[in-house]
Amino acid sequence: MRRSHRNALDRTLVVVCRCLGAAAVLVCLAALTPLPNYLVRSLQAEARLGPADAIVVLGSGIEPDGALSPGSLYRVTQGIKLYKARLAPLIVFSGPAFGGPAAEAEVAAQLARDLGVPSEQILTETGARTTREEAARIARRLEPRAVRRILLVTDSEHLTRAMALFERAGLEVLPAPADSVSPATEGPEARLELLRRLSQELMARLYYRLAGYL
């Protein structure tokens, strides 16, 4: 490469890096303000609880030793709470094994049984690996049971995308958020985590739109 081209490339790199560096500093400073909370709130679906035909708890991950991940535990607990409040007669747990000793849905179902939910009121979906697959497979499983309206349990920022997919699959959806990091959190580290989850969800929405899933 000629020297003049090399110098021009270097100057451009310096300008781009300075701008991105300044942006990174601003993101870190934003963690000391309520900005991440506002951003998450603007993207999340508000809870709308009411009677439904089934409660659907989406998967969030399982540890290699077969324990539910913290996010999964929040969702499962919310699902059981809604069942105990008699908002629906059926509860569906989703989540595969991802190569581990047990499927997330089976571990969640066992926890529900231990907490008093009858086995015949529990359905497990262990084959779906993405939100899109969860919507398609669960809707197919619920069709013979004449389930029309569901309470959908997942993280609040994930709910909007998940609701759209379940509605596309023909179900009426009531959002029931379960957050492992509260959107009202005030700690800088938790706010950075909110920003990370926000970017992750925005990228997922972009991907789903580009792929034509939404």
Binding site: L13, C17, L20, G21, A24, M203, Y207
Partner: peptide
Amino acid sequence: LGSALECLGASVIFLVANVLLGT
């Protein structure tokens, strides 16, 4: 300080590249 900012910016480029390539 300008150099530190540039270094941070270079890290952002690597981060974006890592995420994009991984995805």
